[in-house]
Design a protein around this nucleic acid. Structure first.
Length: 865
DNA sequence: GCAAGGTC
């Protein structure tokens, strides 16, 4: 059996169809779809990955001992040697074998003095798509040879190389070849599979160095910015190779606007024709902008008393407007942005339309339809939409359709076009809005140009000249079907040279020159493309990220004070990250790896020392940067007024434990505090409807945000204690005691406790959210009372006992993909000694970034299966 | 829950 590995499921299916003489058989290996068929008398199977299946991350621990220096341990327990430059100071936390960097995600472990070591921390590749890796390995064991058929680009080569490393884990000697194709046509696919080549390891290494550099710079600078002024969980201040230069673009534009000095000017507007008649029109003075008030006043004076003007000259000019080019990702996002759909939303809608078969693949650079695309069939397919029917019929009357061509031409995917009929009745409104844009754009690209007639009329009133301009669409052409971004017609009455027209007077308006416009999201995407920042698939998410971390607001985009402060601080001490040149430089270095002129090790190591320099500049200025961020951070921390002293109540983080609470700005004179639950806390404007106190928005890890009153004593926060059963421990001793579900008003933690807790110590934790109702049942494994938790996702039954044997069986944990199992996974993972008991689901949920132990357990458990 | 890059 021959195994073909592609980058995505879609490609696996297409290749199977193109290589097979009959229809390929769709099958599943575990939960991954695969396609089986016969090719030249041999059995073949194709499997689609989901992009990258491995992900680089820092190894779990880096420890320091006086004897051995720095050392790391990888996920398999292997020793990793770490070479640190001698100039670095020995850490002040020089305790014996104390890990300083166990988990990348947990903010508790982030430490400022660990950052220099993070720069040089070892990186390894961890599994990201566990299910797919399992399926891939399963097939690899059975196959006689492998063909890597991922996309024909740098990331594709890397994805292929990662897949191969998984395959070699189980089939070290299997022969491997690479298929290179750039379009899904029968001829090209057959050609590429009959002329297989070798995998380009240099190209893959170039991609891998991009991954490492992005991770190292991102992690170090993000942690620096977050720690400089710690403002609680959920308040991460991120930085990265693409997002920071993008932020810098926005900030630079704002600076330009702030530095702009507006200039005064005056505009004279004359009114002509009989009032309220169809002949009425207005016209501006031939001196469009009077720089001096005196000149404008003189012109107004010269017009005084005039009742008529004379048409001095009428010129008409026709201009043709060519139909637009086919959509690629960037132009689609720009057009959607102009229609009020943000790029990120546009891509989500497009992905959904694509998955349901309404449009073609949405991530393309190409703007030229391939010759294999049957334009007429596509028109016929969407002609049934009544809004398009007349126009489509016109198009179909033509013997042959010809389409416009854009500047970018690639052959991997066609430009974005509609692949099936949709009407407002068939899909929901937001999706239809985007579909309509895409379908109309497609029809526009097949249409004739529009012809617009521009009319310019010169008028004289006394000795003053006026100019009136009008545009009339003479031949609608593509404009008939594609009205987006269209200026309204400004029709002028029929005027001829020498005509006399009524002059109804003029007004003089004082105006000021406008500063340069802010970026709209669509414009920013185009600017990023121009500078080579991000890719077509990532730009929208980068902008969304800047919104999420509250660096920017609104559209057109304005930077917030926090965004400006972050940008300025980095620009001052770590300018490398704020400039788009970091990307172009990286691009050059990656090319040199691809050609063999350099190696991944050299490039990453150079990048590390560059980052070390920038960090060295940043670290001594912690106080300065803290000061710069303080105002911006305080603005987000304000929740309301203190009921005792009237000063500001602020969301604060405890210096020692980093846990969150609300404190009064008047501290230490005022001691008012309120507890907060764990999670991301944001201030909201609305006061509590029950008691009038301020409220906060709480987003606990992996839950929906909810609004709560800050006062634990408020009726809205009161929950009655619920009797959930009888204490099993007391019962054994012949006593009878109730188990009660309750919430600690100080910590807001919720738990079940025996009313005799002081004696018997029986207690179980509960999830923080959701109503608790009692059941008559007890857990068959441990005897704890079962409770029903009702959250927004509906009710589910829970055994609250963490150490219940039922939680250690795989079936139970796979079934329970609920917050309870996640919660227990977290708490178990934190009890590192018990990490061996973490079950498969928990491990797969957390192992992406969590401890190596969890990753290891996931491996062993999946093997058992 | 750190980056950016694939894809779902």
């Amino acid at each position: 059996m021959k195994l073909v590995v592609t980058e995505k499921n879609d490609a696996a299916e297409k290749i199977a169809r193109l290589l097979s003489s009959s229809a390929p058989k769709k099958d599943k290996v575990f939960s991954t779809p695969v396609y089986r068929f016969e090719h030249q008398g041999e059995e073949w199977v194709t499997i689609g990955l989901r992009g990258h299946i491995l992900e680089p991350n820092f190894t779990e621990q880096l420890t320091y001992t006086k004897k051995a220096g720095w050392s790391g341990v990888d996920a398999s327990g292997n020793h990793l040697s770490v070479t640190l430059p001698k100039t670095l100071p020995v850490p002040p936390f020089n305790t014996r074998r104390k890990p300083f960097m166990p988990d990348g995600i947990d903010l508790k472990t982030w430490k400022m003095d660990a950052l220099p070591y993070l720069v040089y921390a070892p990186i390894e590749k961890l599994p990201k798509e566990k299910d797919i890796i399992r399926s891939l390995k399963n097939l690899a064991k059975k196959c006689s040879s492998v063909i890597i058929a991922t996309d024909f680009d740098r990331e594709g080569e890397l994805i292929g190389a990662d897949a191969l490393s998984c395959i070699y884990d189980v089939a070290p000697n299997v022969p491997v070849q690479r298929a290179r194709y750039s379009s899904f046509t029968k001829a090209e696919i057959e050609e590429s599979f009959s002329h297989l080549v070798e995998l380009d390891n240099n190209l893959a290494a170039a991609g891998a160095s991009r991954q490492d550099i992005d991770l190292i710079w991102g992690a170090v600078l993000t942690r620096y910015l977050t720690l400089v002024k710690f403002a609680g969980y959920g308040n991460v201040r991120s930085s990265g190779r693409v997002q920071t230069p993008t932020l810098a673009l926005i900030v630079a534009k704002e600076r330009e606007r702030m530095a702009f000095v507006p200039e005064d000017y005056w505009v004279i507007q004359g009114e002509f024709g009989e009032e309220n008649s169809t002949d009425a029109f207005s016209s501006t003075h031939a001196t469009a902008r009077f720089k001096q008030l005196e000149a404008a006043q003189a012109a107004m004076q010269a017009l005084e008393g005039a009742t008529h003007g004379r048409v001095a000259c009428v010129t008409r000019k026709k201009r043709t407007v060519a139909p637009p080019a086919p959509f690629n990702t960037t132009s689609l996002m720009a057009a959607a942005s102009a229609e009020g759909i943000s790029p990120a939303r546009c891509m989500r809608l497009a992905e959904s339309l694509y998955m349901d078969g309404y449009i073609s693949y949405p991530r393309v650079d190409n703007t030229v339809y391939p010759s294999t695309l049957n334009l007429k069939d596509t028109v016929r397919a969407i002609a049934k939409n009544p809004a398009y029917t007349p126009f489509c019929e016109q198009l179909l009357k033509q013997p042959k359709l010809s389409a416009t061509r854009g500047k970018q031409q690639t052959t991997d995917h066609p430009p974005i076009y509609p692949t099936a009929l949709a009407t407002p009745e068939m899909i929901d409104a937001p999706r239809y809005k985007l579909y309509n844009l895409i379908a109309r754009r497609f029809l526009a690209t097949l249409s004739s140009p529009a012809v617009i007639e521009g009319t310019k009329v010169d008028l004289t009133v006394n000795d003053q000249s006026f100019v009136a301009k009008g545009d009339v669409l003479r031949v609608p052409g593509f404009r008939e079907i594609y009205p987006f971004g269209l200026k309204r017609d400004e029709q002028l009455p029929a005027l001829h040279e020498g005509d006399t027209v009524v002059f109804r007077g003029a007004t003089c308006t004082h105006k000021q020159t406008e500063p340069p416009a802010r970026y709209s999201q669509g414009r920013l995407i185009q600017e990023m493309e121009k500078l080579g920042l991000g890719t077509k698939s990532t730009r929208h998410s980068i902008i969304e990220r800047l919104y999420n971390v509250k660096y920017i607001v609104n559209d057109p985009i304005e930077p917030c004070s926090l965004g400006i402060a972050v940008c300025d601080a980095l620009d001052k001490y770590a300018p490398h990250i704020t400039h788009p040149e970091m990307t172009s430089q990286l691009e050059e270095e990656m090319n040199s790896i691809a050609t063999g002129a350099s190696t991944k090790q050299n490039v990453v190591s150079d990048s590390r020392s560059l980052l070390a320099d920038q960090l060295e500049a940043l670290l001594p200025h912690v106080e300065e940067v803290k000061e710069a961020l303080a105002d911006a951070v305080a603005a987000y921390a304000y929740v309301g007024k203190c009921p005792k002293c009237g000063k500001d109540l602020q969301i604060r983080a405890s210096q020692k434990t980093r846990s969150m609470f609300i404190g009064c700005a008047g501290w230490p004179d005022c001691d008012v505090t309120y507890p907060l639950p764990s999670g991301k806390i944001e201030a909201v404007d609305e006061l509590c409807p029950a008691c009038g106190m301020p409220q906060v928005k709480v987003t606990a890890f992996r839950t929906k945000p909810r609004i709560m009153c800050i006062d634990p004593a408020c009726a809205s926060n009161k929950e009655p204690d619920v009797v959930v059963g009888e204490c099993p421990v007391c019962k054994e001793q012949g006593k009878h005691a109730k188990l009660i579900a309750q919430r600690n008003p100080r910590t807001l933690k919720r738990f079940i406790r025996c009313e005799n807790y002081d004696d018997c110590q029986t207690g179980y934790p509960l999830p923080q959210y959701g109503a608790i109702t009692a059941t008559d049942e007890v857990c068959e494994h441990c005897g704890a009372p079962l409770v029903i938790v009702t959250t927004t996702r509906g009710p589910w039954k829970l055994c609250p006992n963490f150490s219940c044997p039922s939680k250690e069986t795989e079936e139970a944990s796979i079934k329970k993909r609920t917050s309870s199992s996640r919660k227990s996974a977290r708490s178990q993972a934190s009890k590192t000694g018990k990490a061996g008991k973490v079950t498969a689901t928990k491990a797969s949920k957390t192992a992406k970034t969590t401890t190596a132990k969890a990753g290891k357990v996931a491996k062993t458990t999946s093997r058992k299966k």
